[in-house]
Write a protein that binds this DNA or RNA. Structure first.
Length: 478
RNA sequence: GGCGGCAUAGCCAAGUGGCUAAGGCGACGGUCUGCAAAACCGUUAUCACCGGUUCGAAUCCGGUUGCCGCCUCCA
């Protein structure tokens, strides 16, 4: 099966062909660390993680780079407000990011380059652009000459003449053309600055990504991702800088995740219309948040809210329950070789084969995790149905149990649903809870329902739920 | 104003020419249960509207309405 990927530049799905056989280089635009991460940021990184995990699963040797832009106007402003060094603001937010990266089961990137650690490389690229006539110095600043790069606008489907009206010139800037953007920014008094051929200053916003992407992944990278709000101007400018400097194609597949909505409107930092991941993590587990984010295709614009997470949590629980039940069946299997599988078993084998195939087909179709999750639910429902239709058949067959666990493990490897691997049955139940359960069983035998219900409430208060199954009481975490 | 996207059940959401329009949540009815829980069964969609292309359209084309995004802060 071949992997097809929607590329923003071409505007359609294309079969994935790596630059180097068997390898994949991915650059994902990380945060400008001016603030704590919000849920929208985390969607982007979960999407990047999904892509990385799937490519690895397909056997590619993946190098995944996610940057931190740790110097810019907003970080400097914030630092000034707080009266601290800009690096303190950056480092604090980077720590926050890592906390929630872990929380959402996002695998660590191979490299997390920072702008401030690549000033020398940035200066080198700016100098190349100046030498080639694509950039010019004006005062202490260096600007990119947009009209000199004729394909400008190809990613965002804009013509240079249409952009003219919206172009912005800030006080003190002396551009040849309002469209030109800053590559190097001369430092004002009290701002962080580095020496350069154009005087002391700091990098403009877009240049660090071009530099770090090409440094770690080569002039042409397989994939470059980020939020749709980065298409223009950020990625458009990256293309202009990089391709002007190298004369080569910069990125083969542009991947852009849809932005999250909150009550129908874009989540956005500037309007204060957003949830930080911190506040959402206080109410929901990282696993449920991730599951919800994956249940919609990352490219579509989707609605975020507490109700959505509650719904996702209920569905997630069904998958978890099946995993736990299978693990229990596995432990309960008799020592001696299982009885030859009943004729009905073939039905289940076929289901597993079908779901495995469909799951991978969905993933191959532009990483369609939402559809893939639909197939998992189909498996859950059909397995539960099989158990009621043919009691004991699955329960007595290590072959079937293993086949199911193997499928689920594969799905988990690709989607990263469970932080600790597939949920196991073993549950540490405190002795006092076990005591309450025993007492409740006695009350139930005595048909003292009031007492039994009271004990059930107390067990619930202790954080556990008890279900009265045919084989006896079953305790689980509430 | 320019460019682009979207509209599928009570809610969320797959599906981009052809089997009965995935899946989840919720709701209602049923099975099981002391009551629950978990699980199962059943019910819950003329795919925004109008016209066209086609043997055949949620899907392609044109138009209408509504919503949203970008147009140099943004994941």
């Amino acid at each position: 099966m071949t992997l097809r990927i929607y590329d923003t530049l071409r505007g359609k799905k294309e079969e994935f062909k790596p630059v180097r056989e068997g390898k994949a280089g991915i650059y994902f635009c990380g945060m400008t660390v001016q603030d704590k991460p919000h849920v929208g940021h985390m969607l982007a990184f979960v999407a990047g993680d999904l892509i990385k995990r799937y490519l690895r699963f397909k056997g590619y040797q993946v190098t995944y780079v996610q940057n931190f832009t740790d110097v810019d106007d907003k970080i400097i402003n914030k630092a000034n407000e707080e009266g601290v060094d800009f690096q303190e603001v950056a480092e604090r937010n980077i720590r926050e990011y890592f906390k929630y990266e872990k929380e959402l089961n996002i695998l660590p990137a191979d490299i997390y380059p920072k702008a401030t650690e690549h000033i020398g490389d940035i200066i080198k690229l700016v100098r190349t652009l100046v030498d080639k006539g694509f950039a010019y110095q004006s005062g202490g600043d260096v600007y990119f000459r947009v009209r000199k790069f004729s394909p400008y606008g190809k990613l965002s489907r804009r013509r240079v003449d249409e952009l003219q009206a919206g172009a912005r010139i800030e006080v003190g800037e002396q551009k040849e053309d309002p469209l030109d953007f800053t590559l190097w920014k001369g430092a004002k008094e009290g701002e962080p600055a580095w020496d350069s051929p154009w005087g002391r200053g700091r990098p403009g916003w877009h240049i660090e990504c071009s530099v770090m992407s090409m440094k770690y992944l080569g002039d042409t990278v397989d994939m470059h991702g980020g939020g749709q709000d980065l298409i223009f101007p950020h990625h458009e400018n990256e293309i202009a800088q990089s391709e002007s400097a190298t004369g080569k194609n910069y990125v083969n597949y542009w991947l852009h995740n849809g932005l999250l909505n909150l009550r129908g409107e874009k989540m956005s930092k500037s309007t204060g219309h957003f949830f930080t991941i911190e506040e959402i993590c206080r109410e929901f587990s990282g696993e449920v948040i991730r599951f919800y984010l994956l249940s919609t295709h990352f490219r579509s614009r989707s609605e975020f809210g507490r109700e959505r997470l509650q719904e996702a949590g209920a569905g997630f629980e069904r998958i978890r329950t099946l995993c736990v039940n299978l693990d229990e069946m596995k432990t309960a299997l008799p020592e001696e070789k299982a009885a030859p599988a009943a004729p009905e078993a073939e039905q289940l084998r076929e289901l597993i084969r079908g779901v495995n195939e469909d799951f991978l087909a969905s993933m191959d179709d532009d990483f369609n995790s939402g559809e893939a999750i639909g197939h998992i639910f189909r498996l859950v429902r059909e397995v539960n149905k099989f158990r009621t239709d043919y009691p004991g058949v699955l329960e007595g067959s290590d072959e079937l149990i293993d086949a199911l666990l193997e499928s689920l493990r594969t799905f988990d490897t690709i989607l990263g649903l469970f932080k600790e691997g597939l949920p196991r049955a073993g549950l540490a139940v405190p002795p006092e809870v076990e005591k309450l359960v025993r007492e409740r069983e006695e009350a139930r035998r005595a048909k003292d329902w009031a007492r039994a219900d009271e004990l059930r409430d107390r067990i619930l208060e202790a954080g556990f739920a008890v279900e009265d199954r045919a084989e006896g009481p079953y305790i689980k975490r509430k």
